[in-house]
Write a protein that binds this DNA or RNA. Structure first.
Lengths: 229, 229, 229, 229
DNA sequence: TATGAATGAGAATTCATTCAT
DNA sequence: GATGAATGAATTCTCATTCAT
């Protein structure tokens, strides 16, 4: 658990240990949220257990309710956190401004790598979809959270179109869904796929090879002047 | 349940006999299985409730245990049923034997339509992945169930390659994953996507438009001689 | 606890011990209901504890939910039982058919004695009124439960009026409320009254003396030709 | 709270001083007490919630404990307030000193109207009786609070007896209980009575009609020389 | 005087499962 | 083959209250 390592009881001489604030509400809340993210990612919403969350957060079940009100409230906070993290990452993406083709590949890579690096994100999204997005719809912070997602891709597309390297009849949202799907499914369903195909879907080399081909697929499609099927 | 139908004693000639006990048992079992499929699809494994299953099956919780032993056993049966249904559908697919390009599109369409027509399949797979495929691995019927999935696509690819219309460096399993992902993700995550993108991801016209483009993407890639990105 | 006395483990020779039926659902249910009546009478609805009920019923909390579904359901059952008991008692009252004045006094005595003999009835009614009769209104068995209450008094009044011994302008329902109030309040509020008046309101002699006067009050009023105040 | 008002330090001459702290404290305390009275009247003691009280008082749960020490202490304060209010109202009653019969009716009317105007009083008394008057007995202010209640009626009775219009064998405490019961029960049990009798027991016209008859009943009884039943 | 953080104990209710016939 | 009764162990959530500043 990152951040948890430095929390020693007696203030040691180690200077980078942050001075534990009074009765550190923020830290307690954050630990609970983090623990909940792990728990829900591992077990889903219905399978997520309050006592395990409390234990992992080195807090009590009571505190979970103190800060988040209910299991639903807690899950909503986890979900919002997941979207907020993605948004923050998106804001930090660097896309080559001079080469739309390269930028598109960078975009794909960013999205796919994000999925690979954040298995909890996938799991929480799947769980939320099982619940027909009811937590998300109750959130109120939706607009704030969703961020640039498609915007980034739209710009990129427009840029490529202006430069004449991308076809003009591509719907940005649909393209986004396609790109996401190419990366998401393989990881989301890696356990059943691995069982069925007899090959570990998350294994780095295989994943890299897949991403290369997937990027080719996307790129070819977006540039794809000639293909009429 | 496939294969279960033939388990009746050779039907006697007496027509006015009341529906045989054996039949009732099979029917009860089938109703429970069906109800469980719906329940697990709607609520996941942990969220699935025995009493609701019993009620929907017009049976009792006791019978659920009588026939399936445990909740895990029941879920496994549901999962096996889901794979068996897909396998049966796959066996029935008709692909144009003379036109690999067309056959590839038919293949994509089949897969995607299957997902659209069987939302429970998606949900149960997601649930099983949350559980790291533990039911599937315990199944024992895996080989029997998985069926031709990739085989079909491999053949198709080989055919197209032999005819010189498909590139030769395509990994069938990876292509399968890509195709599946293109169709799966949009439906699997339709609730969060709909909330975020403000557009119903499962709406028929939008879906059709998306499939057209996705098929183009796949087709272009597989044929895609020239594109080196 | 009536009925509980004979429940010996090994069937003794005592013939009046009812043979404990198989896994006696009816008896278990009845024990829980009885225990709940005591608990709610002592502590009200909110103050009533499931574990105490289970313990007193020599059963488990789980069984409470098995038979009554919820705390509200249990309270409703208790309430219905309370009304049903009153109704049964009312049905059994013997009023002098030849002397309305005497019958009226018998009626009062019956009502008041019922209150004195069933402190739990008073307590449960008070609790239900605190809850604005929400359980009663949800009951569905209301008509069946309420029974002859006012009917009995109406008849009695009509009889006395026909014989010329009762005044004609008496509203039966209002008279019922007055009679009930005269007996109910003293017992319902006996603890605060006892504290304030420094005298035990439920003490038999005092109660008897009070009833005599209260009956005089009612009787004088109903016969009370002359008094115009 | 009576007597609490004079606790400010002798007001300084500085007029532009912000509202004094002491005053704020009193006001907060008063708001909490008021909110608690409403809460306990609505939900009883066990059902009364500290957070709702705090919210209604625009204060915090912490303050409730700050001022009243415990839930029991708070309820005791509410109860004492209820009795104090009744006592104050009793002190202000105007009874016709020249006409005992009229005075008796005025007394009844006062008591009954007080109940009708203070439903919270009834509810809190019922709650306290459920708790066998334990808060009242712990109060210590009992004598101070109970006030003239029966005294007033005793005097009235004595006066009427001296004038020869009231019978001499009436016990004042019992008469008080009878009068109170006549008015109390109808309102205390109005929800169940309304459900059972199908008529709103608190509806003004019906209530007035009832009171007229009840007063007749009391008056006839107290004057009631002749009636020997 | 005031308050945000924290909490142990316990509340109602549910879950998957087994017993006994 | 079928079923009603029963249940131990959670599980979510609440309650009244205290701590630390």
């Amino acid at each position: 658990m990152p951040g948890a390592s430095g929390r020693t009881r007696t203030a040691s001489a180690v200077p980078e240990a942050p001075p534990r604030r009074r009765r550190d509400a923020e830290a307690t809340r954050a630990r609970i949220l983090k623990a909940a993210a792990v728990e829900f990612a591992q077990h889903g919403f219905a399978g997520g257990r309050g006592d395990r969350i409390a234990q992992r957060a080195r807090s009590s079940e009571r505190m979970v309710y103190y800060y988040f009100g209910s299991k639903d409230g807690l899950f909503r906070a986890v979900l919002e956190g997941a979207y907020a993290s993605l948004r923050d990452a998106e804001r930090a993406v660097q896309l080559d401004p001079d080469d739309p083709v390269r930028a598109l590949e960078q975009f794909c890579r960013f999205v796919w790598r994000y999925y690979a690096d954040h298995p909890g994100f996938i799991s929480v999204l799947n769980t939320e979809n099982l619940h027909r997005a009811r937590h998300l719809r109750k959130s109120g912070r939706l607009d704030e959270l969703v961020g640039p997602v498609v915007g980034l891709l739209s710009q990129l597309l427009a840029d490529g179109q202006a430069r004449g390297v991308f076809r003009r009849d591509v719907d940005p949202a649909d393209l986004y869904v396609a790109i996401a799907g190419l990366g998401y499914f393989r990881l989301s369903n890696r356990h059943t796929l691995s069982a069925v195909l007899g090959r570990d879907m998350a294994e780095p080399e295989g994943l890299e090879r897949y991403w290369v081909e997937a990027a080719r697929m996307v790129s070819g499609y977006v540039r794809g002047d000639r293909d009429r099927l």
